[in-house]
Design a protein around this nucleic acid. Structure first.
Length: 343
DNA sequence: AAGGCATCCAACCGCAGCTAT
DNA sequence: GATAGCTGCGGTTGGATGCCT
């Protein structure tokens, strides 16, 4: 497998393109097509290597390139596709007309990745980070500052630290549970401990987590996730992804009945398990269509995921965890109000 | 106003896959 | 099958710009 020597050749210009060079390249390609990139520079009268010409054309000069800020829809598409495809920028770009792989890659690295990290999600797996406790000192500092500002510092540091540790543990449980409830990407390249197939979520640990989660005393001293003090959403139009199940207002008859919540969630698992991996209720079914760009009306998750997530949402809205632990967590990354609170 | 720092993004580098010989 | 050449892709770099002190 030989490497192209073109860029190593001396005497060829490198660096930013001048308007004159752009014009030469455009004129040539519009007349003749690019043909062989290696031969193109000479034919077009450019002192560049073919690779540089190709890059300049595909990333900048191509007439169908869309410029400007990424829309929220595009952001969402990138998030969705990246959760399935990983760093396959060209594949992702093929679903975003007018956007180049380079542009998407830059956008990911400068915006979306940071959002995920700050939210406590692993940008590679799109799942909650398991090392949540490593960020505890930072969270403690944030919340302590907030407490001081809100309440004049009536709570001691130790008391807050103890409370926050309990809350962080609870949140870790929530995130882990949510991790289990999410479908894995196609290549399934997660680290140790991630569920690799449906059977992996049937263990007692999952059920114990559910029980633990639901037995938490939500009505007494509801936990406060730093920066996530959400008021119930009144204006649905203010949510950028209003097509999603509304977790704040969704009500089940068993909202305050922990036992029913556990039963409901376990029943949901049972349905999925009894119907097997190919069940339409199985949230682990990955859409096979190559055109995965979601339309607003097709964004609702599979039945099982919706139901369980709503169960989670009930608990979460009661416990002020709302924005963090629902199954549509990625949508929240785009909700600036939420993100700014965290930051 | 000026210097330092952070962010953005166009462009480069090097590897991998494919095809031709 | 081995080798060479070409293209595409993803990671990284560095200059330009903006922001902060």
């Amino acid at each position: 497998m030989g490497r192209s020597p073109c860029c190593d050749e001396s005497g060829l210009k490198k660096g930013p393109w001048t308007p004159e060079e752009d014009q030469k390249l455009m004129n040539y390609i519009q007349k003749n097509g690019h043909g062989s990139w290696r031969a193109l520079p000479k034919l077009a009268g450019l002192n560049r290597c073919g690779k540089s010409c190709r890059l300049r054309w595909t990333n900048y000069l191509r007439p169908d390139i869309k410029r400007g800020k990424f829309s929220q829809e595009e952001e969402q598409t990138i998030l969705n596709l990246h959760s399935i495809l990983g760093n396959k920028w060209s594949a992702i770009a093929s679903h975003l007309p007018g956007r180049t792989d380079n542009e998407i890659k830059n956008f990911w690295n400068t915006h979306l990745k940071k959002k995920l990290i700050q939210m406590g999600f692993d940008p590679m797996t799109h799942r909650p980070r398991t090392d949540i406790f490593s960020s505890l000192p930072h969270l403690l500092a944030l919340v302590n500052l907030k407490e001081l500002l809100d309440h004049g510092g009536h709570t001691s540091w130790d008391e807050q630290a103890v409370r926050l540790q309990a809350e962080a543990a609870q949140m870790a449980r929530l995130q882990y549970l949510q991790c289990l409830l999410q479908p894995p990407p196609a290549n399934n390249s997660f680290g140790a401990g991630s569920p690799s197939n449906l059977n992996d979520i049937t263990d007692m640990e999952t059920i114990n987590l559910l029980s633990s989660l639901c037995s938490y005393q939500l009505d007494q001293n509801p936990p406060q996730y730093p920066g996530a003090n959400f008021e119930p959403v009144q204006d649905h139009n203010s949510i950028p992804f209003s097509h999603l199940p509304d977790l704040q207002t969704y009500q089940t008859p068993s909202l305050n009945n922990n036992k029913d919540m556990v039963n409901q969630a376990e029943d949901q698992f049972a349905v999925v398990l009894s119907q097997g991996q190919n069940s339409p209720n199985n949230p682990w079914n990955i859409p096979s269509s190559s055109n995965t760009t979601p339309s607003p009306t097709s964004m609702a998750p599979p039945v099982a995921e919706t139901s369980i997530s709503n169960t989670m949402g009930d608990a979460c809205s009661t416990s002020s965890f709302g924005g963090v632990a629902n199954s549509a967590w990625s949508e929240l990354l785009l909700e600036d109000s939420f993100f700014n609170e965290i930051a």
